[in-house]
Design a binder for these strands. Structure first.
Length: 221
DNA sequence: TAACCTCGAGATCC
DNA sequence: CTCGAGGTTA
């Protein structure tokens, strides 16, 4: 369920009545107040309040996506959430820090830092936090991120992880899974019955990891 | 090159 | 909602 279900009719009334000036105000709404509006009876009002409340736990990437930062859509929001893990760390980041993320360049980095430099935007974030909006990435890995910025190739089958699980793990640890081995590849994870990618790694001098070494590196062993 | 972001236009649904 | 144009990034 999503706040986006708020129709224009309802939003318009809320704004006209001064009940909502920015989207942090949505969290202060009550079913009683909403029932005063036209075209929104008690049941809908309660559903709406519940949906708004539930959105507090959408996670940092959804929050960043929802703030409306120029050039930050789903993809950039996920990259930022994955790299910094919490709003506090993102707020403390410099433009250079953000620019260094693979997938984010100078334009987006500047857009993000400009957004957070605006005091009214910081106010909105403060108020969202006080309203109980979760400002951390759900499932974020605490501590060192051994794969930060690393390009990983997976080849062959792993015993303890499916390919999707392995990919998810790499991403959550800050790395990215790429499809072919090149000099820019940081590691090749060699599973069972690995194919030519293992040969490519040897030929190009790219470090290889067997499953045990991979699990150890990612802190799962 | 390919995926992604923004925005406006027109199609579609209720 | 989908589409296309125009821009960003690697």
């Amino acid at each position: 369920m999503d706040i986006e279900h708020l129709g224009e009719v309802v939003i318009g009334q809320l704004v006209d009545r001064g009940m909502v000036k920015d989207f942090a105000d949505l969290y202060a709404l009550t079913a009683e107040a909403l029932s005063e509006l036209e075209r929104l009876a008690e049941k809908s009002a309660r559903n709406l309040v519940a949906a708004i409340d539930g959105s507090k736990h959408a996670g940092l990437s959804r929050l960043l996506n929802g703030l409306g930062i120029r050039m930050v859509g789903e993809r950039a929001a996920q990259l930022l959430a994955s790299r910094f893990g919490s709003m506090d760390k993102l707020l403390a980041a410099t433009e250079q820090d953000i620019n260094e993320i693979h997938g984010i360049g100078p334009q987006i980095a500047q857009s993000v830092t400009r957004f957070f430099a605006e005091s009214h935007n910081r106010d909105t974030i403060d108020r969202l936090g006080r309203a109980g909006v979760v400002m951390k990435q759900e499932g974020a890995i605490e501590g060192p991120r051994p794969l930060d910025g690393k390009a990983i190739v997976l080849t062959g089958g792993l015993r303890t992880l499916t390919r999707d699980q392995a990919k998810d793990l790499v991403i959550r640890l800050g790395g990215r899974v790429v499809g072919s081995v090149s000099k820019k590849t940081d590691y090749v994870v060699v599973g069972e019955d690995a194919g030519s990618k293992a040969d490519d790694a040897k030929r190009l001098g790219v470090p290889t990891l067997d499953e045990a070494a991979f699990l150890k590196l990612v802190g799962r062993a």
